[in-house]
Amino acid sequence: MKKLLPILIAAAFAPALASAADLKIALIAGKTGALEPYAKETETGFLMGLEYLTGGKMEINGRKLKVIVKDDQSKPDMGRTLLAEAYGDDKVDIAVGTSSSGSAIAMLPVAAEYKKVLVVEPAVADAITGDKWNRYVFRTARSSMQDAMAAATIAPSGSYGFLAQDYAFGRDAVKAAKEALVAVKSKAKVVHEEYAPQATTDFTASAQRLFDALKDKPQPRVLTIVWAGPSPMNKLADMKPERYGIVLAPGGNILPVMKTWKNFAGTEGTIYYYYAFPKNKMNDWLVAEHTKRYKAPPDMFTAGGFAAASAVVTALTKAGSGDTEKLIAAMEGMDFDTPKGKMTFRKADHQALQPMYHFRIKKDQKSEWDLLELVREIPASEIPLPVKNKR
């Protein structure tokens, strides 16, 4: 019996040891609800990123990767609950999420409570790496201010009105846009802000208030649309803003939305990612493989999911384990390759510094997805992102 005892003990602990050998990653996304297309792209990009970066082995330093996907339905309460479940019950080493800024903000204190790293992707609200930030939070997604700073570089003068969704993403974006115009010393003036519920389908009243505010202001008169999900741009165009000398300016969106913009050839804007813009081996693989598998090129949130995967793999490899303090030490100031090129986690607030793109809607679109032409890549060095957190 004495001889058997060590064997029995080893057998009893074998499942626990095997489980501990896995590196566990939680991916939380709004797979149900208005942001479902974003969540689907994020998940696809994240898994493709892990595949590419591990050479198809799905392991790091000999340890298998296990991805646990959870749907928070873009609801803050659910996002908070699912992250606590991932850290507490699933014992994940690191978590990634989520689609909604509201849900992401609700998740931040949970990362601090459990003392575990959370990589935010693709939520953009400035508060995530601003006043709601804590040391366990890193963001691969661009922030509202990065969006705004990029857009401000192509807005030298004129009068601007904003139509945005009435929640964290929309209000943050407009606030950031106003700050960005000041930061780049633009002569452009914001003359009106209009906020509408996310479920709005009739934009008549909002549009008329914007038209009235802009119509007598100095040219160019620009109505900027900040909208997650199906864009209201075509509905606004049907109200003929050109009667008042007003032009519409869309922010970059997902490919199915931008497909509906053919009538706006020549219109310019800025975007986080468009599959044909970056020139590097990682993006070449993503475009070719995604097109092969899904019969369409990767979208902006696909690239975002891939970037998050790269951050996770680079961090786990560099840290040598899933230990939180080792991960934080590895990630602060860390460079990592993405389909957009190199990103860097700024040590001050853990925001990924990254390039953006100035686009023009193509006049001659040769295929279903031949939508944009590149005016210029805006390097991270030209986006002087302010630090807004408190360490």
Rank of each mutant, 00 (worst) to 15 (best):
108 L>F: 01
108 L>H: 03
109 P>N: 10
110 V>M: 07
110 V>Q: 06
110 V>H: 04
110 V>W: 02
111 A>C: 10
112 A>H: 08
112 A>I: 00
112 A>T: 01
113 E>H: 09
113 E>G: 00
114 Y>P: 05
115 K>R: 14
116 K>N: 12
117 V>Q: 04
117 V>K: 02
117 V>S: 03
118 L>E: 02
118 L>Y: 01
120 V>Y: 02
120 V>A: 06
121 E>K: 06
121 E>Q: 15
122 P>V: 13
122 P>Y: 09
123 A>M: 11
123 A>G: 05
124 V>T: 15
124 V>H: 10
124 V>K: 10
124 V>Q: 12
125 A>D: 11
126 D>V: 12
126 D>S: 14
126 D>M: 07
127 A>S: 15
129 T>G: 02
129 T>M: 04
129 T>D: 00
130 G>M: 10
130 G>N: 07
130 G>F: 09
130 G>P: 11
130 G>S: 09
131 D>Q: 14
131 D>I: 03
132 K>R: 14
132 K>G: 01
132 K>E: 12
132 K>M: 06
133 W>H: 14
135 R>N: 13
135 R>F: 00
135 R>G: 01
135 R>E: 15
135 R>C: 00
135 R>W: 00
136 Y>K: 08
136 Y>I: 02
136 Y>Q: 13
136 Y>M: 13
136 Y>T: 02
136 Y>S: 06
137 V>G: 04
137 V>W: 02
137 V>S: 05
138 F>H: 03
138 F>Q: 05
138 F>I: 04
139 R>P: 00
139 R>Q: 15
140 T>F: 09
141 A>W: 08
141 A>P: 03
141 A>F: 04
142 R>C: 01
144 S>V: 04
144 S>Q: 13
145 M>N: 12
145 M>L: 12
146 Q>W: 03
147 D>Q: 13
147 D>I: 11
148 A>W: 07
148 A>V: 11
149 M>C: 08
149 M>W: 06
149 M>T: 13
149 M>G: 06
150 A>R: 03
150 A>Y: 03
150 A>I: 12
151 A>T: 07
151 A>M: 14
151 A>R: 15
152 A>W: 10
152 A>N: 11
152 A>S: 14
152 A>E: 07
152 A>D: 08
152 A>Y: 09
153 T>P: 05
153 T>S: 15
154 I>H: 06
154 I>Y: 09
155 A>C: 13
155 A>S: 14
156 P>R: 05
156 P>F: 10
156 P>E: 05
157 S>E: 15
157 S>L: 12
158 G>P: 08
158 G>Q: 04
158 G>V: 12
159 S>A: 11
159 S>N: 11
159 S>R: 05
160 Y>H: 12
160 Y>D: 03
160 Y>N: 03
161 G>I: 13
161 G>F: 09
162 F>M: 12
163 L>P: 03
163 L>C: 10
163 L>R: 04
164 A>L: 09
164 A>N: 11
165 Q>C: 09
165 Q>E: 15
166 D>Y: 14
166 D>I: 08
167 Y>S: 11
169 F>K: 03
169 F>A: 05
170 G>P: 08
170 G>D: 08
170 G>C: 10
